[in-house]
Every structure is written in C-alpha cells, then in structure tokens.
Amino acid sequence: MKTAPLQTNSWISTLNSEKFLPIILSALILAQGCSSESPVNSSVNDESKKPRIALIMKSLANDFFASMERGARQHQESNSIRYELICNGIKDESDLGRQVALVDEMVAAGVDAIVIAPADSKALIPAIKHAKQAGVIVVNIDNKLDQEILAKETVTVPFVGPDNRKGAAMVGNYLASKLEKGDEVAILEGKTTAFNGVQRKLGFQDAMNKAEIKVVSSQSADWETNKANTITSSILREHPNLKAVLAANDSMAIGAVAAVKALNRSKQVMVIGFDNIDAVQTLIREGKVLATADQHGEDLATFGIETALDLLAGNLITPADMQTPVDLINQSTLTD
C-alpha cells in the first residue's frame, strides 16, 4: 500500500486516483483556455492566485498534533479566500525519513510555503535548506530547529512557538508551591533526542532547584504511557518518600497516575504533566493530576500559517521569532 499522505485540497487526491485523471486533464485544458495561469493553480477556482501552504506535523496519533491539524483546518475554512492548505503528518514521531521526504514532496508539488513541526531539530535542516533554495518560504513551529546548524548552513527560518522550558518551569513552580524544601520528586523525560523534551526537563529542574526540592530520579519514558507506568512503579518502590512525579507530557502523566494508584500512594504522590490533552483534563478534575501546561496546539499551526502568509505578502521583511503563550491548567482554571 502506498503511504498516501492526508490531503485537504481536492486536486492532489483526484490526481492520485487514475480514474479521475482524464477528467482532471480535460479540466486543466479547459482552464488553460480560460486563463493563462499555471496548471497547478487552476484547479478549483481560477479567478485569483491563492498561495498554497503545506503544514507538516509530527505523529497525528498524538492528541497534540491531531488538535493542531483541526485548528489549522478550521482556520483555512474561515480564510479559504486567502490560501489553500495541505496537511501532512507522519506515522510516529521517530519516522524521520518520512518527514524529510514530505518536505521534498511538498516542494515538488509546488507549494508556496511550508509550516513545519520538525520531528528532529537537526535532521530536517538539509531538506529545509533545499526547500528554501527552491524559493519556498519555511516557518518552523513547535520544536525549534538547531540554531547552530542553521547558522552554519546560513539558513534563517523564523520560529513560531512556545518556550517549553518556561512552560515546564511554570508547572514545576506551581507544584513546588504544594511541596516543602527537601522533598523528593522524580522526572519522566520525553525522548532524549527531542529538543522540546530536553527543554521541558530543564524547565522542571529549574523549578525544583529554585525551591530546593530534590530530584531523586530522572528517566526517559519515550513519551509513552505504558513505559511511564513501568518506570514510575519502579521509582515509587525505590523511593518510598517520593512526593511527586513530573512528566514531560500528558501521556506519560497518565501512566504515572496508574502506577501511583496501583501502589496505593495517590494520597502521597502528586503528578504533573504537559500538553493539556482531553484525557488529562478529566484526571485534573478528579484530582489525580495536579496541573499541566497548555501551549495551545490548535493555535500553534495557525500562528505559523499567519506568519507564512505575512512573509508571502511581503509584510514581514525580516523574519523574526515569535513566542506563543503557554498557560497553566489546574483544577481552578478548568472549572472556570
């Protein structure tokens, strides 16, 4: 089976199926007759040349990117005069090769701009450089590209996204306000190769150091619920006085909550997460998770798209980084 990427606009999906090829071809010929536009843009309505923007995300099986995609599609629907959108994701977050290929494919498809959440902060840079050389505008969202390598390759890509370190420190500080000096806590890290994972870990550490709370264990659970469950169970047994688990994403927080519950330590151990997925909102309401951070995934792509549109329109001459908000979510913010 071909790994057909998710596509929004109709022309690519129709082109893909051979059945419609004759129809499309005749439509193209007709369109050529009516206007002098390039065939790529003459698909749906041919009165104005709408820029086409490709959104390339990470795993769509992840709530965060699923809601990012929904946000982008809604934005496109209400701004359908301004641009066309192609959404693509990869199978899982480690499918780097596929994401690199997607960038090339989008360039080949002749898009005007690419808004990308890189699965790796380094490996995507060569592909992005090619895209830029082909005249495509690139905006980096969510996971910031490695600035050193970008500089070395003399590529500038504006970054639109949250400061994960600050966000994690914010949730960490809130947790610290419920703890005392010298208390023991553990950190569940994300994938050790992911920039945002490392940033969140650093943010948690910042908050714990400031409050003089002891981090007795810091291990990676690869962003996964079940792995977080196994590791948390082990940490809880090794450290009977543990007061809190700081998970770098909500999926791992869910695993931690299940472990705490299985060992009957819900009263002693607090759990915090990051991302504010639906499932965790329920857990916060039930008091099983203390807090999480919302970095507004649904708006993140929209911010990126707006930046791309500004760049395309020539409104932004020097592409500058833009920081998007991160909010603390706890029981009281959810009940409001």
Partner: peptide
C-alpha cells in the same frame, strides 16, 4: 488488561 491497567485506551499502545 492493558486498558484496565492504565485506565485509558491509548492509540499508541503496545507499539
């Protein structure tokens, strides 16, 4: 048993 253990149904379970 997996769903029961974690009280969740996770689309990325058991990869």
């Amino acid at each position: 048993t997996h769903a029961a253990k974690l009280s969740t149904a996770d689309p990325n379970a058991a990869i």
